[in-house]
Write a protein that binds this DNA or RNA. Structure first.
Lengths: 343, 343
DNA sequence: AACAGTCTTGCAATCCTTTGCATGCCCTTG
DNA sequence: CAAGGGCATGCAAAGGATTGCAAGACTGTT
């Protein structure tokens, strides 16, 4: 049914090898033969069968991507970046979503391994050992995570936290909270460590508020604890958490930024749409995806495992309406005693 | 490097055919032989080479998905649904994004055609002819679009518009605007037609406001025209447009819903996060993706082109804060003369 | 005029799996 | 005891493209 190289060869009056060579290395074929073959191939709409090709070359012309949740806007953008670069390089892209079951991610990588030339893995929560094991077996590039010297694209989390805390301190905040993400998340660890060390440097009064699911619901859950903490400003693990905070704070009648300043991380598109709009540390998400593909393709084309090839992308605080000077002494809870609160 | 059936055969002391049969049709193999083979396969970590398999079977075990923009939350959810169902059925998923170049979508389908058993195509704006041509050549299922009797998953757009208009009319609105999406978008056409016919049925004073890009920026661009139109309520082509309207209305000092009620379509996750939260027609996006895969797999497994297999999913208006009773006679423009506006 | 060297093309093996067919064995039955 | 029928297994072909090697044609040089 599909047209094969044999059909083209027959039509052009040459052998299959010549057809193959014409398409792969045109300079090794006489111009007039080349023209005949190209004409025949075009007339028949010939496309080399990728299965047959990869069977002999060992290459698939496909890359893989594994993410915890396609609907999380962070991963959506990474996916877009990966797709874009892969497509530009002439590679197809296999996508798999673990639905936040980090234990399943290794299996997804294994499943797609024989169909791809390499895989971009976003697995914030799987254990180092599992990831190191995978990297031993397959060609991997990690996004937003470091494990040993597996090739990886990361962002400068510490600098993001630094920018956020400097901003808050400049506004006059003294007591600043960090609403954490999942305990086992790599970037949460990075951000928490930076919060501690840079907060201390800046002589801030720090409050650490546990671990929350990195979604809007997590922020909603964290908000009341935050209010009770007496902090006048908060840095959330990510924007979704921050958006949940904003929502619950509004319900509770806590004004942002007058009573409480809120900073997120990622600068997802929604951050600009709330009122007040969310101040956030812009993370180059799409660029992370693109860079990951570049790293992967470099390896695929060199044909070697280039351990230690990593890239740390820079971030930039984007200031919007959710941060401002603290209204008075004391935290939100002080100015909003129980009676006033709209629970 | 990779372990092949030969390695397993050697280890188990059988022929390659037996290895293949053990994995494909275990009942045709003697139990003890089967055990030896399974043990050897497990010990070596054998996985059949998908390229070799698809070369002979003509099946790839992979499905394709083409969307205009992965970052558009509508398509993000469809993608998630498609991925989920494909994975559950043991299929891998190739994803391609046309970056809103609808002319490129046919080429993307063609490119992946030989790597997949079938493709889910989301192409709201390509011409009917192009799509019909593709369907002739390849196994396709359309999402959110009908072309001839190509298998397709759609939603009941007319009913969505009906629910929205009934809601607005019940609140007491008389002059209602529709802010349109792209002229060549199939669902825009459906929604506009429904707006006209149902609006007339309900005896509403209808205003049609041109075509806008289906993003937040389109809504921002449409807002001023909307204000000038004198409508007290608006139905937007989709939520992103509606969110753009909300943003610009806020800037202009037009209160929602007191001065203007706003309804979107899709009920994307962000819709719940704005203030006021957006009233929107919930569209089962993920379910659309799932249903599309079901249709596709039915065809793949039957091995025939089942023309005319379609499914029309139902929708449900979700009422939130962005709709309410009109404050007084006259449109927003009347109550907000130029002097008051915060441009 | 003959030979060396270059360029072009075809042959054939190879990648790995699946599957129709044949073989050989054993068991059953007349 | 012989023949027939299953059952389990191996053989070999097939699927389509790639590529090392060899052969043939042709150019140019001595």
């Amino acid at each position: 049914m599909a047209v094969s190289a044999r059909d083209v060869a027959r039509m052009a009056g040459v052998s299959v090898s010549t057809v193959s060579r014409t398409l792969a290395r045109p300079d090794q074929v006489a111009p007039e033969t080349r023209d005949k073959v190209v004409a025949a191939a075009r007339a028949l709409g010939y496309r080399a069968n990728p299965a047959a090709r990869s069977l002999i070359t060992g290459q698939t012309g496909t890359l893989g991507l594994v993410v915890p949740d396609l609907e999380n806007p962070y991963f959506t953008s990474v996916t877009k970046g990966v797709q874009k670069r892969a497509q530009a390089a002439g590679y197809a892209l296999l996508v798999a979503d673990s639905d936040e079951h980090s234990g399943q991610e290794a299996e997804l990588v294994r499943n797609m391994a024989s169909r791809v030339d390499g895989t971009v893995l976003c697995s914030p929560r799987a254990s180092d050992d599992v990831i190191a094991g995978l990297a031993q077996e397959f060609r991997l590039v990690l996004v937003n995570r470091r494990v040993g010297d597996i090739p990886a694209i990361t962002v400068d989390n510490a600098d993001g936290v630094r920018q956020a805390l400097h901003h808050l301190r400049a506004l006059g905040h003294g007591r600043v909270a960090y609403v954490g993400g999942p305990r086992d998340s790599w970037s949460h660890g990075e951000r928490l460590a930076a919060f501690r060390s840079i907060g201390a440097e800046l002589d801030l009064d720090l409050v650490e508020l546990g671990n929350f699911r990195p979604y809007v619901s997590g922020g909603v859950a964290a908000a009341d604890i935050l209010i009770a903490s007496g902090a006048t400003a908060v840095l959330a693990y990510n924007d979704l958490l921050a958006l949940g905070l904003l929502e619950r704070l509004r319900q509770r009648g806590v004004r942002v930024p007058e009573d409480l300043s809120v900073v997120g991380v990622d600068n997802v598109p929604v951050a600009a749409l709330t009122s007040p709009a969310l101040t956030s540390v812009e993370v180059p998400r799409m660029e992370s995806g693109r860079a990951a593909v570049d790293l992967l393709l470099a390896e695929v084309r060199e044909g070697v495992h280039t351990a230690g090839a990593t890239q740390d992308l820079s971030v930039q605080l984007v200031v919007r309406g959710s941060t401002g000077t603290p209204a008075a002494a004391g935290g939100a809870a002080v100015r909003h005693p129980a009676g006033v609160v709209t629970t």
